[in-house]
Computed example of a mutant assay.
Amino acid sequence: MSRITDHVNNRSQRANDFDNGDFTFRPASKDKAKARVAIQGVSGSGKTWTGPATANGLSEGRRFAVIDTERGAASLYVGINGIQFDVLQMHRYDPRDLKKALAAAAQAGYGTVLIDSLSHFWKGTDGTLEQVDKAKSRYGNNSFAGWKEGTPMQNEMIDGLLTFPGHVVVTMRSHTEWVLQENDRGKKEPVAMGMRAEQRKGVEYEFGVVAAMDIDNTLTVLKSRCPALHKRVIKEPDGARDIAKPLLDWLNDGATAVDPAEYIDRATAADATYKGLLALYGEVESHGLTATPMLAPDGEATSLGDYIRARGTALKNAS
């Protein structure tokens, strides 16, 4: 009996080796970080122009990547103010496919990625809401069962955005509500007001800067960790000058940040060992980078943490 118990315990230990978190406190420091910007607004508010302009400013003139769900809307601005980017057109919006697209962008070395727009991955074809509905239908229209499958997809997509090894800008459509407002002639007229982003409730908490644009092309910063952008209201904003520049100045005022690409190189190295990968996992976890999107050597999209765990476990089992 003891031999069987030992065997079970050993298997359990192998499975849990990579989940034994490091609870060591370290001195706090402000590292250089990457921008996470969300721009939401109603149709015609100018978010599709402000998004590429902001991404261009963050990339400091280098080509950036655009994941396009808006049928080429962002491409209308190529060449304006020197904006140059490469585009990936998407027509189905499974949140797992966005994770794959981010992994491909990271592999290609893009320093900035723009998602125009993130709303499609919530309520578009094959988006999170459709994934929930498909799951519900398999479990007798049980909503709990549907969200049990949909929530991890949504969470992994957001984790991929937050751990992308470069700057990220997303646009989001706003729920449009028409309200009567008095015009300059003293008469009431209907005005489109953006009330809430078309994404899962609370998604704005995940971004460092969140801004809303109205039909008059006025941008209001709703949230900012960057003091220079706090509560700013900007009429017809220039994304590069008004958003990217003050944000970059603030982000770069810190110690050199860790480079996820270095961790990916170490994880995929031919001479990697189980013990080395176990130590690497702890290092990656301490920097909150386990969800960093990457392409495995076989071309499959995965996350840095999952890859290290799978490879390390395979090496240990093989030995």
Score class of each variant (00 low, 15 high):
Arg3His: 11
Ile4Cys: 04
Ile4Met: 08
Ile4Val: 11
Thr5Ala: 10
Arg14Asn: 02
Arg14Val: 13
Asp22Gly: 00
Phe23Glu: 05
Arg26Phe: 07
Lys34Glu: 12
Gly41Arg: 01
Val42Phe: 02
Gly51Arg: 03
Asn56Tyr: 02
Leu58Gln: 10
Gly61Phe: 11
Arg63Gln: 14
Ala65Tyr: 06
Leu76Thr: 03
Val78Glu: 13
Asn81Ser: 08
Leu88Asp: 01
Tyr93Leu: 06
Asp97Arg: 02
Leu102Thr: 04
Ala104Tyr: 06
Ala106Asn: 07
Gly109Asp: 10
Val113Ser: 00
Leu114Phe: 03
Ile115Met: 10
Ser117Ile: 11
Ser117Met: 11
Leu118Cys: 10
Asp126Trp: 09
Glu130His: 04
Lys134Asn: 15
Ser137Asp: 14
Lys148Ala: 02
Glu149Tyr: 02
Gln154Phe: 00
Ile158His: 02
Val170Glu: 06
Thr171Gln: 08
Met172Trp: 02
Val179Glu: 08
Leu180Trp: 09
Glu189Asp: 06
Val191Lys: 04
Arg196Lys: 07
Glu198Ile: 09
Lys201Ser: 14
Gly202Leu: 06
Val203Gly: 03
Val203Leu: 12
Glu204Ala: 04
Tyr205Met: 12
Asn217Gly: 09
Ser224Asn: 12
Pro227Ala: 14
Pro227His: 05
Leu229Phe: 11
Leu229Lys: 04
Lys231Tyr: 04
Asp238Asn: 15
Leu251Val: 15
Val258Asp: 11
Asp271Cys: 01
Ala272Phe: 00
Glu283Thr: 12
Ala291Asp: 12
Leu295Met: 10
Gly312Ile: 01
Thr313Ile: 05
